[in-house]
Structures are given as C-alpha cells and as structure tokens.
Computed example of a mutant assay.
Amino acid sequence: MTELLHEQLASVGAPTFTARDYRPGLVRHVVLFRYHQEVTFEQKQEVLQRFRSLAHSARSDGNTYIVSIEAGDQASGEGAGAGYEHGIIVTFASQGDRNYYVGAPLVDDPRYCDEAHAAFKDFVGPLLAAQGGALVFDVVSPGRG
C-alpha cells in the first residue's frame, strides 16, 4: 500500500495529494501502541492526552480537519491483543486529510504536513517498544477511491 500511495503522490503532487477534497470518503486511521516496559502509567496517560489534543489540529487556513479521535485502553477479553495497550481511531473525511495528517514518511514537504502530528510522533517514538511498538491500519469506506 505504501508503494501505491507514493505512486499517487508522484502522479498528482503534494498539494493535490493532501487536499481536503482528494479522494473523499471516510477514512478510519487505526493506531495501536505497545510500550517499553519502563514506561510509567503517567507517561501512557500523557500519550493519550496528547493524541486526543490532535483533534484540534488545523491546516494553514485555520480550520480543523480531523473528524474525530477516539482513544483508550485495550480491554478485549479475547486474548488477541498481542501486547498492545492503547488503541486510537482517527477519522478523516478524505484520503487527502489523512495524507496531510500522516506526513513523513509519506509526504516530506512540511507545507503539506501536520506539524502537531509530527511533534507527537517525536514525543511518542522513544516510549514505544523496539519491535512492533506501533501498528497502523487505515480502513477506507468501500467504493471511495
């Protein structure tokens, strides 16, 4: 999928690829976190608080672009959590909004990336387990380009 997205970016350019109207339709960006053993409860709660605050991120026009953020603890009793402790679902109205949010390594030009999300990734990175610290999976509504 990453290769396909890079091909789309190369084909249309960063301004179009990150535009609000690029490939409209709901995108649910699912993120799971697994932490180093040394990470404290307080640090984990700060991760969730900082992630939730990304809901207020705005584009250069001052308008927010994230539809919603849901975040919380793993609470399944199925035994298939694979050690992930927190789950987050970020909902976007288009793939363009998702592309703007993701930024690097997908989009390298800072004019077309969310600086607040980039700062969050810098914060959370050292807290995550060395192997499989984050799992990211995007669910795109059927028939939505």
Rank of each mutant, 00 (worst) to 15 (best):
A75H: 05
L32T: 15
L9Y: 00
Q74F: 06
E46I: 05
A118I: 15
E70C: 05
S141P: 11
T40H: 11
D122L: 10
F92G: 00
F137L: 07
V124E: 09
V139T: 11
V140G: 12
V102K: 01
V124T: 10
G125R: 08
L26W: 01
V67I: 08
Q74D: 10
P15A: 12
L135T: 02
P142V: 13
V12I: 04
Y100I: 01
G103S: 05
E7L: 12
S57N: 15
Q8R: 05
L54R: 11
S11M: 04
L127N: 01
N63F: 09
H86E: 03
G79M: 04
A75D: 04
T40P: 11
L128I: 11
V47Y: 13
S11T: 07
A104E: 11
D138E: 06
G103W: 05
R59M: 14
A82I: 07
H36I: 00
S141C: 09
N99R: 02
R28N: 10
S57L: 15
Y101C: 03
D114Y: 14
G81H: 02
G25H: 08
G72H: 11
T40C: 13
Y100E: 03
V47F: 15
Y84S: 03
S60G: 11
G79V: 06
F33T: 05
C113P: 07
Q74C: 10
G96N: 00
A75V: 07
F17Q: 02
Q43A: 12
D73I: 08
R23Q: 06
L5I: 12
R34K: 13
Q43H: 14
K121V: 12
P105A: 04
L26N: 04
R23C: 04
F137H: 08
P15E: 09
V31P: 14
D114I: 14
L48F: 13
G25E: 08
R34H: 12
Q43I: 10
E115Q: 13
Y101Q: 05
T16D: 02
S141V: 11
G87P: 00
F17P: 01
A129F: 03
F51A: 14
A55H: 15
A134Y: 06
I88K: 00
P15T: 10
F92R: 00
S141F: 12
V90Y: 00
D73K: 05
L127Q: 00
S57I: 15
E3G: 09
G145P: 12
D122T: 15
V30G: 14
R50D: 06
D108I: 08
A55G: 14
D109Q: 06
S60W: 12
E3V: 06
H29L: 05
K44D: 03
D109G: 09
R52H: 11
R98D: 02
I69L: 12
A118G: 15
V136E: 03
H29Y: 10
K44Q: 09
F51S: 13
V47N: 15
G87I: 02
G83W: 00
S68K: 08
R98G: 02
T16R: 04
C113D: 06
S94H: 01
V90S: 00
D21M: 01
S141H: 14
Q8Y: 03
R23G: 02
G145Q: 12
E42T: 07
A130C: 08
D97I: 02
V12P: 02
V27Q: 13
R50N: 07
V140R: 15
I66C: 08
A71P: 09
E3Q: 10
L9R: 04
S11K: 08
G133R: 02
F33R: 04
F120V: 12
